[in-house]
Amino acid sequence: MVHDSKIRVLIAKPGLDGHERGAHVVAYGLRDEGFEVIYTGLRQTPEQIVSAAIQEDVDVVGLSVLSGAHLSLTSKVMAGLRAKGADDVLVLVGGIIPEEDRKALQEQGVSGVFTAGSSIKDIAAFIRSRVRTGE
C-alpha cells in the first residue's frame, strides 16, 4: 500500500517574547522542505505547547525564544512531554542562546540548538536524520 506520510513539526513561541522572525522563517522554510508545519503563534504557555504537540501528533517541536528565558521554558516543555508519554518527540531550540547554555539544554533532552545564521537546509537535514518516516 502506498504511504502518504509526512514529517510533522510544531513551531512554538513560549513565553511573552514577541520576536517572530526566526519562527516565521523556519516555518516557511520547513514547509518548502516538504514538512507539515504547525505554527502556534505568540504567547504560548508550556502546557499549551505540550497539548498542541500531542493533539497534532508531531514528530518535532521547535521552540523559539529570544527573551533569555529559554532554560526554564524549555525544561517545562520537556517535563510536560515526558508526563504525557511523548518523550520520543524531537525537541529543537532556536533564538538567542548563549554558548554556555547549549549544554544545559542538551542535558534537559533537547536534541539540537539552532541560533542565528543556521541554515534551513541544515535544520531540515538534521530532522530527517533523526525522524523515522512512517514505516
Binding site: K6, G41, E47, Q48
Partner: peptide, 15 residues
Amino acid sequence: GALLGDRVRMRGISA
C-alpha cells in the same frame, strides 16, 4: 509540505 496556521487564531482554547 504545508504551513498550518489555524491554531494561531485559536489561542483562547487552553489545554
